[in-house]
């Protein structure tokens, strides 16, 4: 694997391989000395055109645990904010000698443009592009589900028959897209729940079931309920009348939590709007995997960086 741009590109074997490798990485993280020498002497650039503290530190931690040198390049306050193009930035990084580029960009497809451009010969990891994909988030979510459902017997397994309901702003969510493609590849059954305004046109062609009613989705007893963040800028663009109405219809509150089976997982990619799409009671419940997701994110990103930069199979 040269780049990781989309979960849609991943075969089932590749996806399971990444999840298994992340298990190894997680295990190494339990040792006293967490650092592995795998990427010693390699340089990973975190190229962030969009603010994201969580994803950036997660990739930084992952690269450092593999002993890579990490350069953080953020657009704000850099030449990028003065109008430098993606091309010039990429050529600069190539000249510096980057082996891997972790890119977050506000434009859908920017990582693919970078990977195909010939401007730089580094492995490219998509860390979130516009409203397209966020593949490492999809992988860490799958990893989290597998770990909770199969525990120590996770290795080699996919998510066949697991029912996953994703709720919220599907239209603008790169997390939802990466999850939908990956979960389908891994054999899970996905249901999307949102107001019709926040579902993309053509969603009927996706490998999912679609519903508008969160209460019906909860009553269906999904194995996993994944809540998505509602961006504040959607509030004023007629996607729904008010935050209060959204929260009442599609917020996962304590009352809905009480109706969800005790074994069901509650997930959220963060950052959360507590009280809007998820209540504190739900976010902090024993069924919530939100903190595990963050921890697993480092393992997944280690696995991906290792596969891309240390070359080939684990």
């Amino acid at each position: 694997m040269k780049h990781l741009l989309s979960t849609k590109d991943l075969s089932r074997d590749e996806a399971v391989q990444i999840l298994d490798l992340a298990e190894d990485m997680a295990q190494a993280g339990t040792r006293e000395v967490k650092k592995l020498p795998a990427l010693r002497g390699r340089t990973v650039v975190n190229l962030f055109f969009e603010d994201s503290t969580r994803t950036k530190i997660s990739f930084e931690a992952a690269a450092k645990r593999l002993s890579a040198d990490v350069i953080n390049f953020t657009a704000k306050g850099s030449s990028v904010s003065k109008g430098e193009s993606l091309k010039d930035t990429a050529q600069t990084l190539a000249a510096i000698g980057a082996d891997g580029v972790v890119i977050r960009h506000h434009s859908s497809g920017a990582p693919r443009v970078l990977a195909q451009s010939g401007w730089i010969d580094a492995g490219v990891v998509n860390a979130g592009d516009g409203t397209h994909e966020h593949p490492t988030q999809g992988l860490l979510d799958a990893f989290t589900m597998r770990k909770r459902l199969h525990g120590d017997a996770s290795r080699g397994r996919a998510l066949d028959g697991v029912t996953v309901t994703i709720v919220g702003d599907i239209l603008h969510s790169r997390v939802a897209r990466s999850n939908v493609w990956l979960l389908e590849t891994l054999g899970a059954e996905v249901t999307l729940v949102a107001p019709a305004t926040l579902l993309p046109v053509g969603v009927d062609t996706w490998p999912v079931a679609v519903g508008y009613d969160l209460d019906a989705a909860v009553a269906a007893k999904p194995d996993v309920l994944m809540m998505l963040r509602i961006q504040s800028e959607r509030m004023n663009a007629a996607f729904f009348p008010t935050a209060r109405e959204y929260s009442r219809q599609w917020g996962f509150d304590d009352e809905r939590l009480a109706r969800l089976p005790a074994a069901s997982l509650v997930m959220h990619p963060g950052p959360m709007n507590r009280g809007l799409e998820i209540s504190s009671g739900a976010a902090d419940s024993a069924r919530s995997t939100i903190i595990e997701q963050v921890a697993n994110g480092v393992s997944i990103r280690m696995a991906v960086l290792y596969l891309l930069l240390a070359g080939g199979a684990a």
Binding site: G109, D129, T131, H132, L171, P200, G202, V203, W206
Partner: peptide, 18 residues
């Protein structure tokens, strides 16, 4: 709007031109 609105624009995450 960036491209024709349909299944593909939804997949690519590009704003649709209906």
């Amino acid at each position: 709007a960036q491209m024709n609105e349909g299944a593909l624009s939804g997949e690519l995450g590009l704003a649709g031109w209906p």
